[in-house]
Write a protein that binds this DNA or RNA. Structure first.
Length: 233
DNA sequence: TAGGGCCCAATTGT
DNA sequence: AACAATTGGGCCCT
């Protein structure tokens, strides 16, 4: 059996055990797979609980302002088309637009979501990036998450609240004017209260984006939990 | 009419 | 030191 199959089997077993631990709630998972792409999707929080968490996120999360909310692209400065914040374990640092920053210390609502994700994913996380999209005009372009910052092989857990948004994966060799390969775009919708587990090696082969959707009028808050490497010096 | 998808424009950091 | 990452606007298609 190759190591991917072994990993899948272990993941499946873990998941089954945790479903039992969650009181037999029996989360139903959707497996999303393509060449080098391995994700699991479920709705983690029912509407009432998701509503409550969303409200608390809206009340408590403090987003970057000023220079940290701007970016230079092709010589022109822009406000990033979303709001961002980072929270995590004390003592951690990460790099962001050429700076070394510390995440803000965890707040209760983020710990609550983190702990639920840890339970069902069988993984721990020491960091979360919060992205707030005020409406369908807010978006994020195609990118991969910075792997040098991540613990090798660790998954990224993406939890969504608020407006349902389309979400795309595009293979790294299928981008640009002259793609060397033509793999289909993988399209998902990320619903209120949902969890998308992006398992290794998804992030090494596939870019992801949240496209503009002009018909969407409501805000969405997304939490991506990660395990980032402790800073060594 | 307008939403959506694709391409293009420089500079900076790694 | 080669290469990757970042956004908005213009064009085209439906």
């Amino acid at each position: 059996m190759d190591r991917f199959l072994v990993k899948a089997a272990v993941g499946g077993l873990k998941r089954r055990m945790e479903q039992e631990q969650t009181g037999g709630a029996g989360l139903s998972w959707r497996r999303i797979q393509a060449e080098g792409l391995d994700c699991d999707y479920t709705v983690l929080f029912g509407k009432a609980e998701a509503d409550e968490i969303f409200q608390e996120l809206e009340k408590e999360v403090e987003y970057f302002t000023g220079a940290l909310a701007r970016v230079q692209v092709f010589g022109k400065w822009h406000n990033v088309p979303r709001k961002q914040a980072t929270y995590g374990d004390t003592g951690l640092t990460y790099s962001f637009s050429g700076l070394t920053l510390s995440p803000k210390p965890w707040i209760p609502v983020l710990e609550r979501v983190r702990d639920r994700v840890s339970l069902v994913a069988g993984q721990t996380f020491n960091f979360v990036l919060v992205n707030r999209y005020k409406d369908g005009q807010d978006h994020i372009g195609e990118h991969r998450d910075d792997e040098r910052e991540l613990a090798p092989g660790s998954p990224i857990a993406s939890v969504s609240f608020g407006a349902c948004r389309d979400f795309f994966f595009r293979h790294k060799d299928s981008r640009g004017k002259h793609p060397s390969r033509r793999l289909a775009v993988v399209r998902l919708q990320l619903a209120h209260g949902s969890l998308l587990m992006m398992n290794h090696p998804t992030n090494t082969h596939w870019y992801h984006s949240l496209p503009v959707r002009k018909k969407v009028l409501a805000p969405r808050v997304n939490l991506t939990f990660r395990k980032i490497r402790p800073t060594t010096k």
